[in-house]
Every structure is written in structure tokens, then in C-alpha cells.
Amino acid sequence: MELVLATGIGGLVASGVWLLLRERAFSVVLGLAMLSYAANLFIFAGGRLSAEVPPLVLGEVAAGTMPADPLPQALVLTAIVISFGTTAFLVALALRAIGESGTDHVDGGREQER
């Protein structure tokens, strides 16, 4: 499982960087989203992946099953919401930039001016 997840995160990071380096604001938004998925999974994996039981305190825990680590979950929960806030802000910024300059080129349409 660890190997699978690590590979998946690597793939997400790579695609995030690839999108981030494109010259359209739209791609940058998607790229950041990819990177936040990767980051969330990374933090989550820090609590290890051995458990399948949610961290709920409901009477006796069956022998041999350990509940998942709640702390990374709480951190990731915060991170998901914040990354959504960032995405929303970025979208608003991109919309405004498109409104002002008529393009969503990240360097302000220098390419067209040349």
C-alpha cells in the first residue's frame, strides 16, 4: 500500500508541476489543485496506512484492529478547506485578470505583445 500511495503522490505532484508551469491561469489553478491533493495525501500518510477503522470511540475496540490516526486526519481536513479557499481566491484573481487584460496568460500576455 505504501508503495502504491507513494507512486500515486509522485504522479500527482508531477502533473501538478507540469500544469503549474503552463502559461494559462486556468492550468495554474488546476495544477495547484493537483498539488493540494498530493499534499493532503502526504500528510495523511504520515499517520500510517495500517488501519481501516475510523477513529471513533464506540465502546470496546475489537482485538487486532487499531483505529486510524486522528491527528493527520484533522490536519488534512483543515488543509482541504484552506486549499479550497485558496483555489476560490485564485479563480477570482484569474477572472479579474481576464477582465482587465483580456487574457489569462500568467505573464500578463507578454507573448501577444511581442
Binding site: L30, V53, P55, A68, V76, L77, A88
Partner: peptide
């Protein structure tokens, strides 16, 4: 599947909102 139900539901909610937002840009492009 990894025992994080809270995360899953938050992720779903946020994902839907994000799609709505992204489609808002799409209308201008």
C-alpha cells in the same frame, strides 16, 4: 477506504464547489 470518513465527505463537498467555480472561469475563456 483508509478509515477517514470525515475527510472523504469534506473532499466531496469541496470538489463540487470547486467544479462550479472552475466552470465560472470557463464561461470567459
Amino acid at each position: 477506504t483508509l478509515g477517514a470518513a470525515d475527510l472523504a465527505f469534506t473532499q466531496f463537498t469541496v470538489e463540487i464547489l470547486a467544479i462550479v467555480l472552475l466552470v465560472a472561469i470557463l464561461a470567459r475563456l
